[in-house]
């Protein structure tokens, strides 16, 4: 295999890996925003998911490793993934309760969750590992599926598989129709007997589950431990991708692939020492802003987004 092929495969692989968390989180955001609830808490939920996955998997494998340091516990990371989804869903539920039931400003609620995602993991890590910034490295990671030099975490495949599924659910099922109607015109939806609040709860909790999954990919899918603030703004980029993708799964796929490619290219530039790493870090954010400024005028959000429903 020539050097170019290797480089190409590396670039494709790292693009897909960089896309996965963005895609999962953005698909989650799609459910929430289509139901009419802004969810800038994706960032925080990802962190909680990442923490839950790493800590659960580590706590499960730890007693088994004590007898035999090389024991294989393939189930531990799987349970970790489900824990991340559960915790993500729970945080989503909190966001839902406060912003739907108590009609709080959705952006402020989400900001509170993001703030909590900075402090709470440190407390938990200090309580468990006497170390406020990382969790114990995991021995058993998720398997890597692929062929030749091309190996990816199952969560990558899952993320891309979810695109048509989400499209089908949102645009071709009664559930999706109700979800969208609640986000476009809640009064009309209410008048035909759709439970607006319940649909919004579903939307926000689903977004939490998917964002939690994105977090699990960051901590145990792509890596083997939790590092504080490891999401590094991906939740916000996912939101921008959601706008750029016009709240449509296929558009979101394109947008996240674009941002994923930015990130992969930036990492490649940094790795080859073409640019100082500090400059490289800023590139995805600057590009996201440019894209937002250029395209936001043409993207039409769900009409009732951000407004609490008053019956």
């Amino acid at each position: 295999m020539s050097l170019d092929t290797v480089l190409l495969i590396t670039l494709i692989g790292s693009t897909l890996r960089a896309t996965t968390p963005l895609l999962l989180a953005a698909l989650g955001g799609l459910f929430s925003e289509r139901s009419g609830v802004v969810n800038i808490a994706l960032e925080g939920i990802m962190l909680f998911g990442a923490l839950a996955a790493a800590v659960t998997a580590q706590l499960i494998e730890a007693p088994l490793l004590r007898g035999n340091p090389n024991a294989s516990v393939p189930l531990a990371p799987v349970v970790g993934v489900f824990a991340a989804m559960g915790v993500g869903g729970f945080i989503g539920w909190i966001h839902a309760v406060v912003s739907i039931r108590y009609k709080a400003d959705q952006i402020i609620t989400a900001t509170a969750i993001n703030l909590m995602a900075i402090g709470v993991p440190r407390l938990i890590l200090t309580g468990l590992y006497d170390n406020s910034s990382t969790s114990e490295p995991l021995r058993n990671r998720l398997p890597q599926w692929g062929f030749g030099d091309f190996h990816l975490s199952p969560l990558v495949y899952l993320a891309f598989l979810l695109v048509p599924i989400v499209w089908y659910v949102v645009f071709r099922t009664p559930f999706g129709l109700r979800l969208r109607s609640v986000g476009e015109h809640p009064e009309a939806a209410d008048s035909v007997g759709i439970d607006v609040r319940r649909m919004r709860y579903y939307g926000v909790i689903l977004s939490g589950v998917l964002a939690g999954l994105a977090g699990a990919f960051l901590s145990i899918g792509n890596f083997n431990q939790f590092i504080r603030e490891m999401s590094g703004g991906r939740g916000f980029i996912a939101l921008a991708a959601l706008i750029f993708g016009k709240w449509n799964p296929w558009g979101v796929l394109g947008a996240t692939l674009l941002f994923g490619a930015f990130e992969a290219a930036a990492t490649l530039l940094g790795g080859r020492q073409l640019l100082p790493p500090t400059v490289v870090q800023a590139i995805p954010f600057v590009l996201t802003m440019l894209v937002l400024a250029g395209f936001v005028g043409r993207a039409i959000p769900p009409k009732a987004i951000g407004k609490p429903f008053e019956k």
Binding site: D105, T111, A112, I113, M116, G119, V120, R122
Partner: peptide
């Protein structure tokens, strides 16, 4: 066994509860 992160958590909770009145 306590760290100053307790305070940052309290601040975040205050925001959440104020948002929910």
């Amino acid at each position: 066994d306590l760290t100053r992160d307790v305070v940052s958590m309290i601040l975040a909770l205050v925001v959440l509860f104020i948002a929910a009145k």
